[in-house]
Simulated scan of single mutants.
Amino acid sequence: MSIEAPETKVVDSYRVACDGGDGALGHPRVWLSLSHETGEVECPYCDCKFVHKDHAAAA
Rank of each mutant, 00 (worst) to 15 (best):
M1Y: 12
M1E: 03
S2M: 07
I3A: 08
I3V: 14
E4T: 00
E4K: 09
E4W: 03
A5H: 00
E7T: 14
E7F: 15
E7M: 15
E7Y: 10
E7R: 15
T8G: 05
T8S: 07
T8M: 07
K9P: 09
K9M: 08
K9S: 07
V10Y: 05
V10G: 00
V11N: 03
V11T: 07
D12H: 11
D12F: 01
S13P: 06
S13E: 13
Y14S: 06
Y14C: 04
Y14N: 01
Y14M: 12
R15P: 04
V16N: 07
V16C: 07
V16R: 13
V16H: 08
A17I: 12
A17Y: 11
C18S: 10
C18R: 08
C18E: 03
D19Q: 07
D19E: 11
D19C: 13
G20I: 05
G20W: 00
G20K: 03
G21N: 03
G21M: 02
G21H: 03
G21E: 02
D22L: 15
G23A: 13
G23W: 13
G23M: 12
A24K: 06
A24L: 12
A24P: 07
L25Q: 09
L25T: 08
G26T: 02
G26S: 01
H27L: 03
H27Y: 08
P28T: 09
P28Y: 11
P28F: 11
P28R: 13
R29I: 12
R29D: 12
V30M: 03
V30L: 02
V30C: 05
V30Q: 01
W31I: 06
L34G: 08
S35G: 09
S35M: 04
S35V: 00
H36S: 12
H36K: 13
H36D: 10
H36V: 01
E37V: 12
E37P: 08
G39V: 02
G39A: 09
G39M: 05
G39F: 05
G39E: 11
V41T: 03
V41A: 08
V41H: 00
V41D: 02
V41C: 05
C43V: 05
P44N: 02
P44W: 10
P44M: 01
P44R: 12
P44S: 09
Y45W: 14
Y45C: 05
Y45D: 10
Y45Q: 04
C46T: 05
C46R: 04
D47G: 04
D47V: 15
D47P: 01
F50A: 00
F50I: 01
F50T: 02
V51T: 07
V51W: 04
V51R: 00
H52D: 14
H52S: 03
H52C: 09
H52T: 05
K53H: 11
K53Y: 08
K53R: 15
K53E: 13
K53T: 05
D54K: 15
D54H: 14
D54P: 14
H55W: 14
H55L: 05
H55P: 03
H55Q: 13
A56I: 11
A56P: 05
A56R: 11
A56F: 06
A57P: 06
A57K: 02
A58E: 08
A58T: 15
